[in-house]
Nucleic acid binder design. Structure first.
Lengths: 156, 156
DNA sequence: TACAAATAAATTGTGTGCAATCTAATTTTT
DNA sequence: AAAAATTAGATTGCACACAATTTATTTGTA
């Protein structure tokens, strides 16, 4: 028997939440790469398009809040999507600080092709349907309740 | 009532596994940033160190397999860890293709300081203990069973 | 109404993440 | 054993991801 319980147990990869989460997310993104390439999107661009398809045109700010990305990431991604003609970017007349992201015809049509993308996971993840639902539910709950620590302090 | 069930339901962010997974992983990494900075590590470097602490010295190849990173990512990260004196990199005498990653004294000592890192999550994720365990279990199961599609074909 | 504070994007700098390619060492074949 | 195939890392190129800073616009206030 090994004496006292190991205080370092918490540092084992499998005992943490963060590592399986991080690794699992990367693996799934990897699986999506090929089917996404077929419709001309990167993973991040796909997330952006899904948000626009689901919620409609909105400002970069709103978009960033929905998909947890800041302007440092979003601005260049949106410029690429604009170059690919899937969206237009337009300063709002009422308040020129806002950039409205607007789906183009081409961007709307892409939705049809994108239907095949989520299917790429079929058979790749060996979880039962119930497990999948439970997993998704827990992730959403965790996400809704992430309480970014007291950096709020700095905001005065 | 809206007529037929919407075939685009699968493209909603919340109906997918990939988005909550991706977003959740990023949020947790964000929470870790501050405490990691205190001990002088980035998130990726932290994952590397945890693998070494748990499994001991090993080759870059083995390390990469454990933490799902390829040499394109690992090589520069390991060089930085070497510059920070947490690891040494040494070509194996038996087979010069392999680079052995070896914890230094400093790297071993860091383990003690790293104990505070996982604690940063306390109170940030509002899941019950049981939910946490379930979530981690499902993620590990998913990860173990990721079946990267038939690109194996290309390998002939 | 000027001017300070606030706000949305854009920019900059650093650090991944990964496919594709290259290089050097080793193993397998002929 | 020499050539071919394999293998571990290193390199390159592209795309995020995000903190920190800057810029342009709007809002709040004296």
């Amino acid at each position: 028997m090994s004496g006292q319980p190991d205080k370092f147990e918490v540092l084992k990869l499998g005992n943490q939440l963060c590592f399986p989460l991080y690794a699992c997310a990367k693996e799934i993104i990897r699986i999506y790469r090929k089917p996404l390439e077929k419709i001309g999107l990167t993973y991040t661009q796909y997330i952006v398009m899904m948000a626009l398809w689901e919620f409609g045109d909105m400002s970069e700010k709103e978009l960033g809040k929905k998909i947890y990305l800041d302007s440092g990431t979003l601005t260049p991604v949106l410029k690429k999507l604009e170059k690919a003609c899937f969206v237009k970017r337009q300063r709002a007349k009422e308040d020129e600080r806002f950039v409205k992201i607007i789906l183009t015809e081409s961007g709307i049509e892409l939705k049809e092709k994108a239907l095949q993308v989520p299917q790429a996971l079929d058979g790749c993840i060996r979880l039962t349907y119930d497990e999948m639902i439970t997993l998704r539910g827990l992730l959403k709950k965790a996400l809704e309740n992430v309480n970014y620590p007291e950096n709020a302090k700095e905001k005065k």
